[in-house]
Protein backbone atom coordinates (compact mmCIF):
# COMPACT_ATOMS: atom_id res chain seq x y z
CA UNK A 1 0.00 0.00 0.00
CA UNK A 2 2.80 2.27 0.93
CA UNK A 3 4.41 1.62 -2.45
CA UNK A 4 1.17 2.28 -4.33
CA UNK A 5 0.86 5.59 -2.58
CA UNK A 6 4.34 6.47 -3.57
CA UNK A 7 3.85 5.50 -7.23
CA UNK A 8 0.52 7.23 -7.41
CA UNK A 9 1.99 10.43 -6.08
CA UNK A 10 4.72 10.34 -8.68
CA UNK A 11 2.22 9.62 -11.42
CA UNK A 12 -0.12 12.34 -10.28
CA UNK A 13 2.74 14.79 -10.18
CA UNK A 14 3.74 13.64 -13.66
CA UNK A 15 0.23 14.14 -15.01
CA UNK A 16 -0.06 17.51 -13.42
CA UNK A 17 3.34 18.51 -14.67
CA UNK A 18 2.40 17.49 -18.16
CA UNK A 19 -1.01 19.08 -18.17
CA UNK A 20 -0.06 22.13 -16.24
CA UNK A 21 3.49 22.38 -17.45
CA UNK A 22 1.99 25.65 -18.53
CA UNK A 23 4.72 28.19 -18.28
CA UNK A 24 3.88 31.83 -17.88
CA UNK A 25 6.30 34.51 -18.91
CA UNK A 26 6.28 38.16 -19.82
CA UNK A 27 6.86 38.73 -23.51
CA UNK A 28 7.40 41.81 -25.58
CA UNK A 29 4.78 41.76 -28.29
CA UNK A 30 5.06 43.64 -31.50
CA UNK A 31 1.79 45.54 -31.27
CA UNK A 32 0.30 47.74 -33.91
CA UNK A 33 1.23 51.40 -33.61
CA UNK A 34 -1.94 53.41 -33.75
CA UNK A 35 -2.48 57.13 -33.38
CA UNK A 36 -3.28 58.07 -29.80
CA UNK A 37 -6.88 58.57 -28.71
CA UNK A 38 -8.48 61.34 -26.69
CA UNK A 39 -9.63 60.19 -23.24
CA UNK A 40 -12.48 62.12 -21.59
CA UNK A 41 -13.65 61.71 -18.01
CA UNK A 42 -16.55 64.15 -17.53
CA UNK A 43 -18.88 64.17 -14.52
CA UNK A 44 -21.66 66.36 -13.25
CA UNK A 45 -23.52 66.30 -9.93
CA UNK A 46 -25.69 68.77 -8.01
CA UNK A 47 -23.19 70.32 -5.60
CA UNK A 48 -21.09 73.44 -5.66
CA UNK A 49 -18.29 72.82 -8.11
CA UNK A 50 -19.86 69.45 -8.79
CA UNK A 51 -18.41 69.11 -12.24
CA UNK A 52 -15.11 68.40 -13.92
CA UNK A 53 -13.76 67.31 -17.28
CA UNK A 54 -10.41 65.51 -17.45
CA UNK A 55 -8.70 65.34 -20.84
CA UNK A 56 -5.63 63.38 -21.83
CA UNK A 57 -4.23 61.25 -24.60
CA UNK A 58 -3.57 57.54 -24.60
CA UNK A 59 -0.01 56.24 -24.60
CA UNK A 60 1.48 52.98 -25.81
CA UNK A 61 0.62 49.93 -23.73
CA UNK A 62 4.09 48.61 -23.13
CA UNK A 63 5.87 51.96 -22.76
CA UNK A 64 6.45 53.86 -19.56
CA UNK A 65 5.70 57.37 -20.86
CA UNK A 66 3.32 59.47 -18.71
CA UNK A 67 -0.10 60.14 -20.23
CA UNK A 68 -0.12 63.50 -21.98
CA UNK A 69 -2.68 65.95 -20.52
CA UNK A 70 -4.61 67.90 -23.14
CA UNK A 71 -4.23 71.58 -22.40
CA UNK A 72 -5.89 74.58 -23.97
CA UNK A 73 -9.04 72.79 -25.03
CA UNK A 74 -12.34 74.63 -25.31
CA UNK A 75 -14.84 72.81 -23.05
CA UNK A 76 -18.49 73.92 -22.86
CA UNK A 77 -21.43 72.45 -20.93
CA UNK A 78 -24.86 73.63 -22.05
CA UNK A 79 -28.05 73.08 -20.04
CA UNK A 80 -31.41 72.32 -21.59
CA UNK A 81 -32.32 76.03 -21.57
CA UNK A 82 -29.38 76.63 -23.90
CA UNK A 83 -27.29 78.33 -21.18
CA UNK A 84 -23.71 77.60 -22.13
CA UNK A 85 -20.97 77.43 -19.49
CA UNK A 86 -17.37 77.36 -20.56
CA UNK A 87 -15.09 75.40 -18.26
CA UNK A 88 -11.71 76.78 -17.34
CA UNK A 89 -8.53 74.76 -17.06
CA UNK A 90 -7.81 74.60 -13.32
CA UNK A 91 -4.80 72.35 -13.72
CA UNK A 92 -3.13 70.64 -16.68
CA UNK A 93 -5.92 68.78 -18.50
CA UNK A 94 -8.58 69.40 -15.80
CA UNK A 95 -11.49 71.73 -16.59
CA UNK A 96 -14.23 73.04 -14.26
CA UNK A 97 -16.91 75.73 -13.90
CA UNK A 98 -18.21 76.28 -10.38
CA UNK A 99 -21.20 78.26 -11.64
CA UNK A 100 -23.06 75.27 -13.02
CA UNK A 101 -25.82 74.04 -10.70
CA UNK A 102 -27.13 70.83 -12.22
CA UNK A 103 -30.80 70.02 -11.61
CA UNK A 104 -32.41 66.60 -11.25
CA UNK A 105 -33.92 65.23 -14.44
CA UNK A 106 -32.33 67.94 -16.65
CA UNK A 107 -30.24 67.24 -19.72
CA UNK A 108 -26.74 68.65 -20.25
CA UNK A 109 -24.63 68.73 -23.37
CA UNK A 110 -20.83 68.59 -23.48
CA UNK A 111 -18.75 70.05 -26.31
CA UNK A 112 -14.99 69.74 -26.45
CA UNK A 113 -12.90 71.42 -29.07
CA UNK A 114 -9.25 70.40 -29.17
CA UNK A 115 -6.94 72.30 -31.54
CA UNK A 116 -7.69 71.40 -35.10
CA UNK A 117 -9.59 68.21 -34.25
CA UNK A 118 -13.23 67.45 -34.80
CA UNK A 119 -15.53 68.40 -31.96
CA UNK A 120 -16.33 65.81 -29.30
CA UNK A 121 -19.90 65.91 -28.03
CA UNK A 122 -21.90 64.01 -25.49
CA UNK A 123 -25.06 64.26 -23.43
CA UNK A 124 -26.15 63.28 -19.94
CA UNK A 125 -29.39 63.47 -18.05
CA UNK A 126 -29.28 63.81 -14.30
CA UNK A 127 -31.31 61.07 -12.60
CA UNK A 128 -34.82 62.37 -11.79
CA UNK A 129 -34.96 60.77 -8.37
CA UNK A 130 -32.78 61.69 -5.47
CA UNK A 131 -32.40 58.25 -3.93
CA UNK A 132 -31.47 58.23 -0.26
CA UNK A 133 -29.87 55.62 1.92
CA UNK A 134 -32.50 54.19 4.25
CA UNK A 135 -30.13 52.41 6.59
CA UNK A 136 -26.86 50.49 6.77
CA UNK A 137 -26.28 47.12 8.35
CA UNK A 138 -23.32 44.81 8.82
CA UNK A 139 -23.44 41.09 8.05
CA UNK A 140 -20.41 39.01 8.99
CA UNK A 141 -21.35 36.10 6.69
CA UNK A 142 -23.19 37.36 3.68
CA UNK A 143 -24.32 35.47 0.58
CA UNK A 144 -23.21 32.17 -0.83
CA UNK A 145 -19.60 32.92 -0.10
CA UNK A 146 -20.42 34.06 3.43
CA UNK A 147 -18.19 37.10 3.25
CA UNK A 148 -18.41 40.01 5.68
CA UNK A 149 -20.46 42.75 4.07
CA UNK A 150 -22.10 46.09 4.68
CA UNK A 151 -25.62 46.21 3.34
CA UNK A 152 -26.86 49.55 2.07
CA UNK A 153 -30.66 49.61 2.27
CA UNK A 154 -32.38 52.12 0.08
CA UNK A 155 -35.81 52.87 -1.23
CA UNK A 156 -35.65 52.34 -4.95
CA UNK A 157 -38.26 54.54 -6.65
CA UNK A 158 -40.76 52.33 -8.43
CA UNK A 159 -41.58 52.74 -12.09
CA UNK A 160 -38.23 54.15 -13.19
CA UNK A 161 -34.93 52.46 -13.97
CA UNK A 162 -32.23 53.51 -11.55
CA UNK A 163 -28.54 52.80 -11.64
CA UNK A 164 -26.26 52.91 -8.63
CA UNK A 165 -22.62 53.04 -7.76
CA UNK A 166 -21.31 52.77 -4.24
CA UNK A 167 -18.09 54.24 -2.99
CA UNK A 168 -16.90 54.08 0.56
CA UNK A 169 -14.40 55.63 2.90
CA UNK A 170 -12.81 53.88 5.86
CA UNK A 171 -12.02 56.19 8.77
CA UNK A 172 -12.26 59.14 6.42
CA UNK A 173 -10.05 57.71 3.63
CA UNK A 174 -11.91 57.24 0.37
CA UNK A 175 -11.15 53.80 -1.02
CA UNK A 176 -10.19 54.31 -4.64
CA UNK A 177 -10.58 51.10 -6.64
CA UNK A 178 -7.41 50.00 -8.37
CA UNK A 179 -9.12 47.52 -10.64
CA UNK A 180 -12.34 47.68 -12.60
CA UNK A 181 -13.45 44.58 -10.71
CA UNK A 182 -13.52 46.54 -7.44
CA UNK A 183 -16.10 49.01 -8.67
CA UNK A 184 -19.49 48.38 -7.08
CA UNK A 185 -22.28 48.96 -9.58
CA UNK A 186 -25.89 47.85 -9.49
CA UNK A 187 -29.02 48.34 -11.55
CA UNK A 188 -32.58 47.92 -10.30
CA UNK A 189 -33.35 46.25 -13.61
CA UNK A 190 -31.84 43.07 -12.20
CA UNK A 191 -33.54 43.36 -8.83
CA UNK A 192 -36.67 41.64 -7.72
CA UNK A 193 -37.41 42.99 -4.25
CA UNK A 194 -33.91 43.67 -3.06
CA UNK A 195 -33.82 47.43 -2.42
CA UNK A 196 -30.33 46.89 -1.16
CA UNK A 197 -26.75 46.76 -2.35
CA UNK A 198 -24.12 44.68 -0.60
CA UNK A 199 -20.57 45.90 -0.22
CA UNK A 200 -18.58 42.69 0.02
CA UNK A 201 -14.91 41.78 0.28
CA UNK A 202 -14.29 43.95 3.31
CA UNK A 203 -11.74 41.58 4.80
CA UNK A 204 -9.43 44.34 5.97
CA UNK A 205 -11.96 46.02 8.23
CA UNK A 206 -11.65 45.76 11.95
CA UNK A 207 -14.12 46.27 14.69
CA UNK A 208 -14.59 49.97 15.45
CA UNK A 209 -13.76 51.18 11.96
CA UNK A 210 -15.99 53.96 10.68
CA UNK A 211 -17.19 53.24 7.19
CA UNK A 212 -18.88 56.01 5.22
CA UNK A 213 -21.01 54.89 2.32
CA UNK A 214 -21.65 57.14 -0.70
CA UNK A 215 -24.71 56.01 -2.64
CA UNK A 216 -24.48 57.47 -6.14
CA UNK A 217 -27.66 57.43 -8.22
CA UNK A 218 -25.95 57.54 -11.63
CA UNK A 219 -27.28 58.10 -15.12
CA UNK A 220 -27.23 55.39 -17.79
CA UNK A 221 -24.06 56.67 -19.52
CA UNK A 222 -22.11 56.57 -16.27
CA UNK A 223 -23.47 53.12 -15.48
CA UNK A 224 -22.83 51.72 -18.96
CA UNK A 225 -19.26 52.93 -18.88
CA UNK A 226 -18.21 51.62 -15.50
CA UNK A 227 -20.14 48.39 -15.69
CA UNK A 228 -18.35 47.48 -18.89
CA UNK A 229 -14.90 48.62 -17.78
CA UNK A 230 -13.93 45.06 -16.81
CA UNK A 231 -14.31 44.00 -20.43
CA UNK A 232 -10.97 45.62 -21.22
CA UNK A 233 -9.14 43.24 -18.95
CA UNK A 234 -9.27 39.84 -20.55
CA UNK A 235 -7.24 36.92 -21.68
CA UNK A 236 -6.97 36.32 -25.38
CA UNK A 237 -6.55 32.79 -26.76
CA UNK A 238 -6.82 29.70 -24.59
CA UNK A 239 -10.01 28.09 -23.40
CA UNK A 240 -10.76 30.95 -21.06
CA UNK A 241 -10.19 33.56 -23.72
CA UNK A 242 -12.77 36.24 -24.46
CA UNK A 243 -12.83 39.24 -26.70
CA UNK A 244 -11.58 42.29 -24.84
CA UNK A 245 -13.55 45.41 -25.62
CA UNK A 246 -13.50 49.08 -24.85
CA UNK A 247 -16.09 50.10 -22.28
CA UNK A 248 -19.29 51.58 -23.67
CA UNK A 249 -18.87 55.33 -23.85
CA UNK A 250 -21.21 58.06 -25.06
CA UNK A 251 -18.77 60.37 -26.83
CA UNK A 252 -18.50 58.88 -30.29
CA UNK A 253 -16.60 56.03 -31.85
CA UNK A 254 -13.01 57.13 -31.57
CA UNK A 255 -13.08 58.77 -28.17
CA UNK A 256 -12.43 56.84 -24.97
CA UNK A 257 -14.39 57.87 -21.90
CA UNK A 258 -17.80 59.16 -20.88
CA UNK A 259 -19.90 62.12 -19.85
CA UNK A 260 -22.01 61.08 -16.88
CA UNK A 261 -23.95 62.54 -13.98
CA UNK A 262 -25.24 61.47 -10.59
CA UNK A 263 -26.85 62.50 -7.34
CA UNK A 264 -25.36 61.28 -4.08
CA UNK A 265 -26.38 60.42 -0.54
CA UNK A 266 -24.13 59.39 2.31
CA UNK A 267 -24.34 57.58 5.67
CA UNK A 268 -21.83 56.02 8.04
CA UNK A 269 -21.64 52.85 10.10
CA UNK A 270 -19.24 51.64 12.77
CA UNK A 271 -18.14 48.04 12.30
CA UNK A 272 -19.33 46.06 15.35
Amino acid sequence: MHKTKYISRILFTLCLLTLISACERAVNLNLKNEASHVVVEAELHPAAGGNYVLLHRTTKVQEDAQPEAIMGAKVIITDQNENAFELTEIEAGKYQNINITPLSGEKYKLQIQINGESEITGETQLPTDYVKIDSLSYDSSYGILLNPAIICHLIDPPGTTNYYRIRYAVNGNLMVPTSAYDIIMSSDETWETENMIAIEYLENLSSGDLVTIYLMNVDSSYFNYYSTLTSTDRNVGGILGTNPENPTGNLGENVFGYFGSYSQDTMSIVIP
Binding site: E34, H37, H56, R57, T58, K60, P67, P177, T178, A180
Partner: peptide, 8 residues
Amino acid sequence: SRYTIGGI
Protein backbone atom coordinates in the same frame (compact mmCIF):
# COMPACT_ATOMS: atom_id res chain seq x y z
CA SER B 1 -3.04 51.99 -26.04
CA ARG B 2 -3.38 52.59 -22.33
CA TYR B 3 -4.98 55.34 -20.26
CA THR B 4 -6.27 56.08 -16.78
CA ILE B 5 -9.92 56.70 -16.08
CA GLY B 6 -11.69 56.96 -12.74
CA GLY B 7 -8.31 56.28 -11.19
CA ILE B 8 -8.06 52.91 -12.93
